[in-house]
Design a protein around this nucleic acid. Structure first.
Lengths: 230, 230
DNA sequence: GTTGATTTGTGTTGTTTAGCACAAGAAGCT
DNA sequence: AGCTTCTTGTGCTAAACAACACAAATCAAC
């Protein structure tokens, strides 16, 4: 029990990822003994590309981005994760992490020892199946994203990004998102200036409405139409 | 034992993917009883996007492409797999397959019942770990590919493609590859005409040499330089 | 062997997107 | 509170790439 961080034990945590529901009480207790709960401020790096893979993260609160640091002056953001998600599964059996994770807003993260996690996979088949399922959802999003990047023009790609946030990250037509145009550009493979122009048009045309840190999509069908046309 | 196809039982097969080495003899026998071995000719579709997910494929001989069928007149090729690889892991827990698989040259495929495969994951932790590891390698290739697609110009992307074939598919500086310029375009997110022009330049500059169905890369460092510059 | 379809290749033009320069407003730091 | 840096936004230009038209070569089908 990590009393020092004042966190509830895993057994009693209400913020579980689906895979944790496959664990026995005993496995949850063991997990609780090899994790720490840490708070990160907006902008702080949680996992650094090139560092040793030593833990798997569970996001209790907040929003993070998973990105590749590149030689150029543009990172490439692969995904965003909100509360209740596991982060770091693509490097579960690696020695070195090949991507970075950073807080997009203030976050609370459970950091679980990677050895403990690997043992859970070995010992609990249902848990392993759920982990594979989670990784595969991410993989299939990557597949769709590659089609977006290569076969759609910039309007379609920015539409895809907002559909992603609404349907897959926040599961809501209205959501709190406080990222810069540069971060949106890094996520969609566009230049910052292109995001600025097209987002201004989306606002003007009422496709996307921004208010006090919240985005809203009044008519998802119109946005999907733009996504479909490319 | 699938005597009808004349195939060796899995227990005695010399063409195993690494994960199969984690199975017990008993598990190999069970696997052998729920698989069929099928021959495909170049161009034939092995798995069709939108069909039910019913089996996991193991490629004994040949080369296949895994691709997304899109609304436009360009598919998007995600990966190529050669002999000894498992195909279909991204849809292991799906009902419907979200991509297609086709033979790039004549192939021999072992088709394993997906239920049997799921049971192996549930019962054998080492097998499950190896499956996760395999999926993650594919995921990380997708990550690198997205950087290539968004941050490099066409020369760098075509260089990336040849590096991929040499280092990751064939593990050799010289390899047999018989794909059209259109297939290379579908793999790199370029137009066919652009692949034709740039490949002609690569041939002229001696970066890539083509002879009787074989490609050779005389100087990998020069190609990596082109990849790095983008 | 012939015919039709497809692929490869060249030249030119049009479209899409990024980059540059500049200005105004907002945010962060001291 | 003031200064510096960053973000957002506009106008214009250049670069990268796709598209179109056409021809020659190769492949597949009959």
């Amino acid at each position: 029990m990590n009393e020092k961080s004042g966190a509830k034990p895993c057994l009693y945590c209400g913020a579980k990822a689906t895979c944790f529901t496959k664990l026995t009480d005993e496995e949850l207790i063991v997990t609780g003994e090899s994790r720490v709960e840490i708070k990160y401020k907006k902008g702080e790096i949680i996992t650094k590309q090139g560092s040793f893979a030593s833990n798997i993260l569970f996001l209790k609160e907040g929003l993070v981005k998973l990105y590749l640091e590149t030689e150029g002056d543009h990172d490439f953001i692969l995904n965003f994760y909100n509360a209740g998600k596991l982060i770091g599964l693509p490097s579960l059996y690696d020695t070195i992490v090949s991507y970075s994770v950073a807080a997009v807003e203030d976050c609370v993260v459970c950091s679980i020892d990677i050895g403990t996690f690997r043992n859970l996979v070995m010992e609990n088949g249902k848990f392993a199946a759920e982990i594979i399922n989670t990784i595969n959802h991410c993989t299939q999003f990557s597949f769709d994203k590659m089609v977006s990047l290569t076969q759609k023009q910039l309007n379609g790609r920015l539409a895809d990004a907002f559909i992603y946030f609404s349907k897959y990250v926040f599961d809501s037509q209205k959501f709190k998102l406080n990222i810069s145009r540069k971060e949106m550009a890094d996520f969609t493979g566009m230049s910052t200036i292109s995001v600025i122009r097209i987002l201004k048009d989306f606002n003007k045309d009422g496709l996307v409405v921004y208010n006090n840190g919240y985005y809203e999509i009044p008519d998802m069908k119109r946005l999907e139409q733009i996504s479909a046309v490319g």
